[in-house]
Amino acid sequence: MKNLLTIDSVSKNFGSFTALNNVSINIPEGCIYGLLGPNGAGKTTLIRIINQISLPDTGKVFFNDQELNASHIRQIGYLPEERGLYPKMKIGEQAIYLAQLKGMDRKTARIELKKWFEKFEISDWWNKKVTELSKGMAQKVQFIVTVLHKPKLLIFDEPFSGFDPINANLIKDEILKLNKEGATVIFSTHRMESVEELCENIALINNSNKILDGNLDKIKKDFKTNTFEVAVNSPNAKNLESKLKSEYETFAPTFRTIGDNLKMNIRLASSQNSEKLISLLNSNSQLIHFKEVIPNVNEIFINSVQND
């Protein structure tokens, strides 16, 4: 797949502090990309470099195979984590202003804005000032301003913070819709469940270094340990248990079931396969639960950061 954004060996220092150390990331066109990392890892610095707010010390960034330049600004929409609006300016006017700065003309901006305002049912806010709105309301306006100029690349830094679940869902649906229409999306977030739900690809940054990147399914495959959750209802549970323990590496169960009398986690060695395990479990007993343990993003995140 073609890469929309290629970050090539980018480093950035602030005085003696290294914010990014030789980071390379490829972001395929049309995907939803999760940019993960603990606080202070360098995510915001990287996002600012993509937005041309700051320049890398070394390394290059390519947008659509072109080296990043001022003409790309209008193809990027950025919703920063620290966001705000002019407190004393009317909502409509300021949305038009921000759209103009992205290169839209006044007329188109107004037409597009009206559409979005209607969609979000906030048309009567047009002449209000930010100080009259709640935080969640202002966030809606900011979201609209970010996506209004139909950018090819959307960058969201913690997009759901400050939204109630209903509005967070509304925003999530809009992001998915924009993605379906062709926009590439970069997510920077701590909320692993939304990464799990939305992202096809991720990169993990820790201590200024990229420690992991690629397709999320592939990463999960790499991280899985061949461990299975098993639960059976057996007339001879004790026997089965000792047999399993002698043949396999077993652990205490990490799941919930009902109607069983024996459950555990079993890790297969590389010489063992799951068919044999299943037939063993099936003989003389009723198989209640059998599931491969697939690491979630949260576990991958914590594991990688701790091992780094």
Binding site: A70, L79, P80, E82, L85, P87, L98, L101, V145
Partner: peptide, 17 residues
Amino acid sequence: IEEKSSRIIEVIVSSVK
């Protein structure tokens, strides 16, 4: 100071130098 404290600044500098 207003632009900085209202935090609109980052949105703006992502659009203009």
